[in-house]
Simulated assay, not measured.
Amino acid sequence: MDGAPLLCLADFEAAAGRRLPPDVWDYIRGGSGEELTLAGNRSAFARLPLRPRFLVDVETCDLTTNLLGASLSAPIGVAPTAFHRLAHPDGEVATARGAGDAGQLMVVSILASRSLKDIAAVASGPLWLQLYWLRRRDLLAEVVRQGEALGYRALVLTVDTPRVGRRLRDRRNGFAVPPDITAVNLDDAMMATTHDAHTGTSALERHAREQFDPTLTWADLAWLRGLTGLPVLLKGVLTAEDARLAVEHGVAGIVVSNHGGRQLDAAPAAIDALPEVLDAVAGHCPVLLDGGVRTGTDALKALALGASAVLVGRPVLWGLACGGASGVRDVLGVLAAELEDAMALSGRPRLRDVDATLLTRPSG
């Protein structure tokens, strides 16, 4: 890692920006359109002040939790992001090691640049598998079956990507994945477009239009659930209407997410969408938040609103770029330590003590 101590996620961000090639750095940090939603994911947290309570015994704080049968050291996990080898040669293998060392969940992308087998071989923490709905259902089915056989514990279907959003940084850079990095769990021919660079266009945007199935509807979820006994979560839900439909279709969980501001620009900030989704779900399944979490107090605010856990994407790549597995472990460790501090300073030593009264005045 850099010589200066990396004490917060902003330190990791700055260090990663110095290490990575400019086009890769733009790919990781950028959003779609005018990047309004990207900025909103962060600014929305600032509008939620905490209401601390005092004269509470906080000598010991307990962050441990259980999520769909997995024991976690903290309600924090690694969000699915593609091509980790862009950030470090060991890619997702290093990420899995770091997440396991931290005792936290990792959601592995279907576009991982290391094999599901190699990732599972080093993981000491729980793994979930993220999916995009491919036009070729035979390949999608094979990935699902492989993940289940290797011990992945849940499937996370991303639903907000019938096509990739207009990411102007990538278009300006003519961004393409280097030829030595590929989504190794999918067919080589399917991934060929990701390496095809053209100025003014994004190779990943073209690839998604070719390979992602935009005809996906709620009715198709039955096919996916029929493939496997694994629980299926939906990632990308932002409205009460979709949350209710998800529950009706038997999902095991929901991830409230706007894809890190990389899809529909002007979509709501994830933390702003969380309350209506939680109200609609009404406790039928766990609801996670993914989007804009950069501090332990951000995580605490999401938990206070009712989220079961938070996921982080870009910060994990910053840690990976700075120090491989140890960098990932340290990023997740910083977030957990900050969350513990925030819980103690708020007078909420256990997760069960964290509720909406931490953010809003109780009625009556």
Rank of each mutant, 00 (worst) to 15 (best):
P5I: 10
A16I: 07
P21C: 09
D23A: 15
I28W: 11
I28T: 02
G30V: 11
G30P: 10
G30C: 14
L36W: 13
L38H: 08
F45I: 07
C61K: 10
N66H: 10
L72Y: 15
G77C: 09
A82M: 01
H88W: 14
P89M: 11
P89L: 14
A96N: 07
G98V: 06
Q104S: 15
M106D: 05
V108T: 14
L111P: 00
R114N: 08
S124F: 03
P126Y: 05
W128M: 06
R137A: 14
L139Q: 14
V144M: 03
G147Y: 01
L150D: 09
L155S: 08
V159S: 00
D160N: 05
P162F: 02
G165H: 07
D170K: 11
R171T: 00
N173H: 14
G174F: 05
F175E: 10
A176S: 13
P178I: 07
D188P: 15
A189S: 14
G200Q: 03
H207W: 15
R209I: 01
R209M: 09
L224T: 03
A240H: 05
A240D: 07
D242P: 04
R244Y: 00
E248D: 12
G253W: 04
I254A: 04
R262H: 00
L264K: 00
P268L: 08
A269V: 07
L274H: 14
V277N: 08
L278R: 05
G283C: 02
R294S: 04
T297E: 15
A304S: 14
V312C: 08
V312R: 09
A325W: 02
G333D: 05
L335H: 04
E338I: 02
L345A: 12
R352W: 00
